[in-house]
Design a protein around this nucleic acid. Structure first.
Length: 117
DNA sequence: CGAGTGACAGGAC
DNA sequence: TGTCCTGCCACTC
């Protein structure tokens, strides 16, 4: 998996279950590098594959939608999340206690061995 | 190949 | 989740 860190990010993001969200930092941590949070955001910004990568399920640590969105703006992102059962507060944030993806590697089936080859 | 960039996080106060 | 400030590293030009 040395095609780039980005690809690893995409692999994880694709495994986020419907109705759940994850933070950039969380994804970074899953990849074994908590400091990669910014890189995760950068990776999704590139978003070479919008139809495969549900980046609307990835939010910042406040549970708030990101400023720019590759699919068509915050509105679209919000609608997609609502469509998955996620309720937004009136200030545009979501309840992370309820919706934050608690799953880790065990749940998503990605094994670090795979990352090695 | 060096410098700048960025969908961020976390600690300090 | 008050604000401010610093660190972080892959990627692009």
């Amino acid at each position: 998996m040395r095609d780039g860190f980005f690809k690893q990010v995409y692999d994880v993001v694709k495994e986020i279950p419907k109705g759940k969200v994850a933070t950039y930092g969380q994804i970074a941590k899953i990849l074994g590098a908590p400091k990669f949070s910014q890189i995760v955001g950068y990776a999704l910004h590139s978003n070479p594959n919008p139809k495969e990568i549900p980046c609307h399920r990835v939010v910042n640590r406040f549970g708030q939608l990101s400023g720019s969105f590759a699919f068509g703006g915050r509105d679209e992102q919000r609608r997609r999340l609502e469509n998955e059962g996620i309720i937004f507060e009136k200030d545009g944030t979501i309840d992370m206690k309820k919706y934050q993806w608690t799953g880790e590697l065990d749940d998503i089936g990605i094994v670090f061995e795979n990352l090695d080859k």
